[in-house]
Amino acid sequence: MSPRETAPQADFFRGVWRENPVLIQMLGLCPALAVTNTVENSLWMGLATFFVLTGSSFIVSLIKKLIPGEVRIPTFILIIATFVTVADMSLEAIVPTVHKQLGAFVALIVVNCMILSRQEAFAAKRPLGRSLLDAFGTGLGFIVALVMMGAIREVLGNGTLMGFSLFGPNFEPWVIFILPPGGFLTLGFWLLLLNWFQKWRTERAKVRAWPEGVGAPPERKAA
């Protein structure tokens, strides 16, 4: 990935949606699947990751000139691990119940490929401000994806959203969605939906771009 000139806002929005770390780049799947059985867990996990990502992007971008290439990755990991330790302990102190549910997965943020890849691909090459924007965007994208996962899993798996009951007491929870298979299936389902949307959009664009007077546009195949 060679550094191209991009607008600052592009750095930010790219990570949120178009290059969403989870939904598009398939990075950081482990927490995205493991701890997203409720929206609350997803949110805290997302926030913790956001904190680690921005923090380490900040530091890496700050000292990027001083890091020798050979020890680049270990250094990054060291920096990330520092922030994760901080996040881990803070979470345990602030929201002990959530921390208990997230368990070791908070500590596992340190090996979230997403964070390392942002350091490699962006923070180590760009100026501080851009790196921070990028980290904000990517982190936000991560939170968005996690909450998307959490929302489906909590609503179907428990009948609640953020703890509020949606369907009344008689709702039969689909337990599978808070179990591991439900994680895979939910993400798979989201990807199907996004792919379908993508396909629908490109085809609509094709139809719209069809020059006038050149016959009818090719019929859209039923999805």
Partner: peptide, 10 residues
């Protein structure tokens, strides 16, 4: 990946 995830789910 969608298929891979669904296989993984199965």
């Amino acid at each position: 990946m969608a298929l891979v995830l669904i296989i993984a789910g199965s």
